[in-house]
Design a protein around this nucleic acid. Sequence first.
DNA 1: TACGTAGTAAACAGAT
DNA 2: GATCTGTTTACTACGT
Length: 594
Amino acid sequence: MMVESASETIRTTPSNQNGVSSLSSQSDGGGGREGGSNGDTNGEISPVDLLHLQQQQALQAARQFLLQQASGLNSPGSNEVKQSPVQVPVSMAMMSPQMITPQQMQQILSPPQLQALLQQQQALMLQQLDLSNFSTLKQLAFQQQLIQMQQLQQQHILNLQRQGLVPLQPTAHIYIKASEKYVCITISLLLFCVCLCLPSHEEHAGSHPLYGHGECKWPGCEALCEDMGQFIKHLNNEHALDDRSTAQCRVQMQVVQQLEIQLAKESERLQAMMTHLHMRPSEPKPYNQPLNLASSGSLLKRDSDAYPEGLPHPPTSAATPITPLRQGPSVISSSSLHTHSHSHTHAVGPIRRRNSDKYCTPIASELAQNCEFYKNADVRPPFTYASLIRHAILESPDRQLTLNEIYNWFTRKFAYFRRNTATWKNAVRHNLSLHKCFVRVENVKGAVWTVDEVEYQKRRPPKMTGSPTLVKNMISGLGFGSLNASYQAALAESSLSLLNSPPLVTPPSAASLNMLHVGHDDVSSTVEQVNSNGSCSPTLSPQQYSHPVHVKEEPTEVEEDSRPVSLLAGVTHSLPLPSDERDLEEDLPTEELE
DNA sequence: TACGTAGTAAACAGAT
DNA sequence: GATCTGTTTACTACGT
């Protein structure tokens, strides 16, 4: 008798709304605007026109960029794409809002790309401020516009944050005394991005740099004006050319100069900080790894080859304050991009995936950092189902979950899994059954699923030992060049295990945890497997296995017989250890070994 | 090219 | 009978 689950047999209809083709068409659509002239006939270029001019220039590059991405995805074997460094054309930093929304930008761009974009925009803004040929009045106008834009940006970004589309961004506040009051210039990387994504009409829709939100923006004025006409009248009456206005102009000019100086200083400081954070013992050659748009490539590729010269490079280490942006949107974007490029354009695209699983951040840290992001944003987590399931189980108090609880965890943690339930639930069940590392335990209440850490670590043969270059590169890229790969992996895995095992261990110090995070963040599960002795893996309490268990057979697994029930041996050292693992055992601090 | 891993779809069966 | 749970197979894509 065949009984089909209705929920499981619902076919998901292909969704192309986020597909590459859509993006391409969008870019084409955006490109349709690029023919527009700036309307600058008298040779004078206003700040607004400058912005528009750069946006127009950005259109071309952005289209090219997107098409490049799309074509690369359409031809999976393309080495060009694989080897192309993660970069964002400078002009893309000024991408037109008509082309790409912030959300789309997150989906399209990988984290480093997004960061690069934001920082390029920042740099461009700084350049804007540095235009020395601006007349005083234009400087004033620009400054006013800058402030106006900030207000709009802040409003916009708040909306985005409420929608969970934008993680909280680090900002820098610069207070400068202007006239009678202090002007707070908030530098937010994302603001610059969002700013340019604002509808263009907001920039010059019958606006005046000195008029905004119904009031006069003349320094120290704040007179209420119902409309532009009234404002113009007010402007001519109250701020006519006289000594007072001239003096105010001078003051404002100084304000702008101070801003420029301050911004230059802050920018320099920022760059120095980033340079410092990116310092590595040795500059590894960009290995011939396929570019994982998701995160691997981004995390592994260094700024030198990934970002344009002279522009601030997005930090990638855990020490960077821009972590949320680094992780959240990042992974996602590429994942989404990749996903939708597949022939079978399911609404739930495949998690591509191995790279993510291997090189991307581990779930623990990733989720810890972007918990809210994944909860709210409809973006696919860059982890394999197996990884997610494992994490869900290990995160539970008893390290065991029923299938339904696993489902709930997925939907609770990821907005992405609140739709297309049939697809991913099937995948979850499939993974549970397929992978030996997931052990079904008969419980009083029913069946629960547990994780056999040893099996999980064994899932993939220790390829890392076979490709030391990869490990070395990754490790050195993290600034751990002096440590061997296995130790790094051990540290990494330990950190995850520690994170996953709150009841078992005392939390490591913040510093060590952070450091471990860094290691694991970028090395992730491929390295995890190196540390397969399970000594620092979450301890499986024996009482969990007092019930019958169904040990799955995996034909591909070798030495199946050499090991009794791996469950119970899950945290013991009874298994013969590969040399690397023995090294781990020897080298690992006792704290890590627990 | 072969192989392994991963995601998806689907068929099927047992349990509730 | 419907639904859930679990297993298995097939296919595809990707990375090594």
